[in-house]
Nucleic acid binder design. Structure first.
Lengths: 228, 228
DNA sequence: CTTTTGTCGATTGTCAACATTTTAAGATCG
DNA sequence: CGATCTTAAAATGTTGACAATCGACAAAAG
């Protein structure tokens, strides 16, 4: 108990309630505890988290700017509902950002980084062989996060993280995963191969195509935006 | 007087003080009234704008998320200072986003849109001939905004707008403009030509190169990040 | 029966005050 | 004279209360 309160105090000295609450809300959105379209009741949230409404409201303003909630004046904040068109647009932006990450990484990649990426691909193969979708998904995420981070553009890192958080708002995203695990990992191998060959243009093209294939599996060819 | 109060009331019914203040702060940053590194005094701002600190703090949390200010716990919010590396990273991201905008627009562009873009280029030529840098800059902005908007990806539109706002934090950005007006507009013509030819890949490449040339003029070749 | 109007409860928008932390000036000591 | 501790002022973090607004339901008018 004393440990808890101590660490809580320590935390509160280095972080504000606002940032803690914002992360908590992001987590709730990510795990689906807050579902799309739902309204956030400030009083209820404040009571549940044991704080006043001020930090709650401040956190919501941050979430609004990062696109996770919509704020309507005098009506409240609503968990953003991503329709098919929004999701398709996100895929397109993500495709070119991932492409850039590959183009940046290829010329400067170290052998150790190639080994790390290769390991992720092998772990995904293992998860796939075991039919373990819950193991595949986080590794897939780590794989792409690593490429972006190794690329060295910190703005690109935060941008991709933000887009990924937004993607969680699209509930049907899991549809593309089960059937595509095998082909998806084949594409991963090709991506690592282009990076290892220090082929910037090839890596960029492979990464971009990788995302667009997912996009097209869900929504049809680029340029066509579904309405729902 | 009555008109003023009426419109003010009308505004306050459709917008919150928070959003009004956020826009006001964004404007202050854009015109340089708030310079990089400067601290925002909540009390002073509240007194100056005639509101309490609550809406000020909420607005700052939004600005933090959009990267315009840094918030340090118990110390305050500071106008973000973009160093050379940050700016170079922004250019790289902007390059691929502009490239995407061209690739999206080329297949669906209307003749009217081509005419609009051509007009912007001609206006830039005129401003250039008159040595009017203050006339060139906003048209250049409108030109690229138009391409992004015509592309039809609304997420890309807001993304590019956010990046452009962030760019204002880099004070030395004007360095690349004076000498590059002529060549820059030549590149603009090539971009419009590729779009008018419905050449998606060509338009994407031309736009991407257009941004990277500016970037390299400021910072050197891609892949090298200056520290300051 | 439909539409409009009025009222009520709930929720958000805003504010002023309190608590905690930082900062800077001044005093004290080596 | 410089360094360090003390202390007061200023700034931020947080809270609870008040005012304004919205949605829903009921009552009255057409």
């Amino acid at each position: 108990m004393s440990l808890d309160t101590d660490s809580a105090l320590q935390l509160r000295r280095s972080q504000s309630l606002t940032s803690i609450i914002r992360r908590e809300l992001e987590r709730m959105i990510e795990i689906g505890e807050l579902s799309a379209g739902e309204r956030l009741n400030e009083n209820a949230l404040a009571a549940k988290l044991g704080v006043s409404r001020g930090p709650i409201r401040e956190a919501c303003r941050g979430l609004e700017q990062s696109g996770l909630v919509d704020v309507v004046v005098n009506r409240g904040v609503f968990i953003r509902a991503l329709n098919g068109r929004d999701a398709a647009e996100l895929y397109e932006v993500r495709a070119v950002l991932y492409g850039l990450s590959g183009r940046l990484l290829a010329p400067i990649v170290t052998d150790e980084q190639v080994a790390t990426l290769t390991r992720y691909v092998e772990e995904m193969d293992a998860a796939m062989a075991a039919g373990d979708l819950n193991g595949f998904y986080p590794r897939n995420l780590r794989f792409h996060e690593a490429i972006v981070e190794f690329g060295g553009n910190s703005r690109l890192v935060s941008e991709c993280a933000a887009i990924h958080r937004e993607m969680h708002l699209y509930r049907r995203r899991t549809l593309d995963m089960p059937g595509r695990m095998a082909t998806s990992n084949t594409e991963h191998r090709a991506i690592v191969e282009r990076i290892a060959a220090r082929d910037a243009a090839g890596a960029a093209a492979a990464l971009e195509e990788h995302v667009l294939i997912s996009r097209n599996a869900l929504f049809g060819p680029l340029g066509h935006y579904p309405d729902a």
